[in-house]
Design a protein around this nucleic acid. Structure first.
Lengths: 229, 229
DNA sequence: CGTCTATTTGAATCGGCTCAAACCATGTGG
DNA sequence: CCACATGGTTTGAGCCGATTCAAATAGACG
């Protein structure tokens, strides 16, 4: 029987990181796991700070961004339930992380976490796979920014969010982030993003239920425009 | 004394991957290491093939690229001596790799290589660091494509190549790749790249010795324009 | 209901793209 | 050695997509 201090294993299952782990491994992880709660707009990681923790998103949404001295901003990713944060293999974080709404996290001390990873081949494989997915996702975005037109980039983002939210019952996409966040993610301006929405609407690919709620009318063409392969 | 089959450890020292390794670890690596030589234009990795090998560049230059069904191409990186290739943590390569000129490589069977990495904490740390650098480099490029103007992106590339070639005696930059390769790396067209060169020249930042040889006249401003921080 | 902010829409401008021609270096055959 | 062909690069002109600046509209919240 688990001691009272142990959270039930179910809380871990939302992330791929913990897939296939035995009870003992889960217990070890639980022992070094801290809960953390962020309110909307709160900063979790400050760019250039030393990488001391890794996190797993339990619920909510985070935004990973990079700011330059000149004031320009590139949004790198949006993280949802089950995503991992701070899986950097460098000394310091090269990005900031802020929450877009109330968000629950599991927090691990990096050093302790890596020690556990070393001991479990399953966990090691999972961590490797996650690292690979982070890079793969970044390469997809790189392709979109380098090769795609404004409305195609927007399809890229919509398709990506849809894939993350397909568990949800209804088909609508919820856009938690602002137009400015979308613009900085896609390397565009807010006006261009707004016009890209209008264009997709006029193409009958989407319906703009509200500024932050989009209904996809034609998945096939959306995916086609979003494709980076 | 090393057996005749063992290559001298010196051949490994060009890459960060092998930094700080003991003789025994080097011997293990040597035992599973194959030499490979590519002539200019030859393909090393085909996109979507299963990831069976990892490589370290001994000499020469490689180009990592991704092609989409629609025929568009994004160049992801240029790899020089000491760089690693195929450090994917995914099942298959999501990019192609071709050589830009005669290139020498060390080749390892991925599975065997990872087994060795598991056994050596130094090698493990090195591999982790390298993985981190790959991601960091990709994030830099992402920032450049998303936020920078054509001539700034070119500065980004020039500064990057200079950093890799600073070991060479003279200050000139050698551009092994074609204008088309540069364009696809920076998300531009060849004409725009050419005009960006002309612009940097008129700004007296560079001198175009020949199409493939650039002399930097003002490092400070070049770095400023190239900066992604 | 009014204020504040986010988003959309419009008009003008600009940067990068397209298409076309010129230029240049290299190599080949007469 | 020169004439010519070839592929890569540069330059020019016009166009189009994205940005900029400005104003209108829509939502959120007191």
């Amino acid at each position: 029987m688990p001691s009272p201090a142990l959270k039930p294993p179910e809380t871990f299952f939302h992330s791929r990181l913990f897939r296939g782990l035995g009870n003992e491994e889960l217990a070890d992880l639980t022992a070094i796991c801290q809960r953390r709660r962020l309110s909307a707009g709160e900063q979790l990681i400050k760019q250039h700070s030393t990488a001391q923790n890794v996190y797993v998103v339990v619920s909510g949404t985070l935004m990973i961004e990079r700011l330059s001295r000149s004031g320009r901003r590139q949004v790198i990713a949006f993280a949802y339930s089950g995503d991992y944060i701070g899986f950097t293999n460098t000394e310091e974080y090269e990005y900031s992380v802020v929450s877009l709404r109330e968000t629950e996290l599991q927090s691990f001390v990096r050093r302790e976490f890596l020690a556990l990873v070393d001991q479990s081949s399953t966990l090691k494989a999972n961590a490797r796979q996650i690292g690979g997915n982070v890079l793969a996702q970044t390469l997809d975005q790189l392709f979109a920014l380098g090769q795609k037109k404004a409305h195609e980039r927007l399809c890229f983002l919509l398709a990506q969010i849809r894939r993350r939210q397909c568990g949800t019952q209804n088909a609508d996409i919820e856009l938690i982030m602002s137009r400015q966040d979308i613009a900085d993610y896609l390397g565009l301006t807010i006006e261009t993003v707004s016009r890209a929405f209008a264009r997709l609407k006029s193409m009958k690919l989407i319906e703009i239920v509200s500024a932050h709620r989009i209904r996809i009318l034609d998945h096939a063409i959306l995916e086609e425009l979003a494709s980076v392969h």
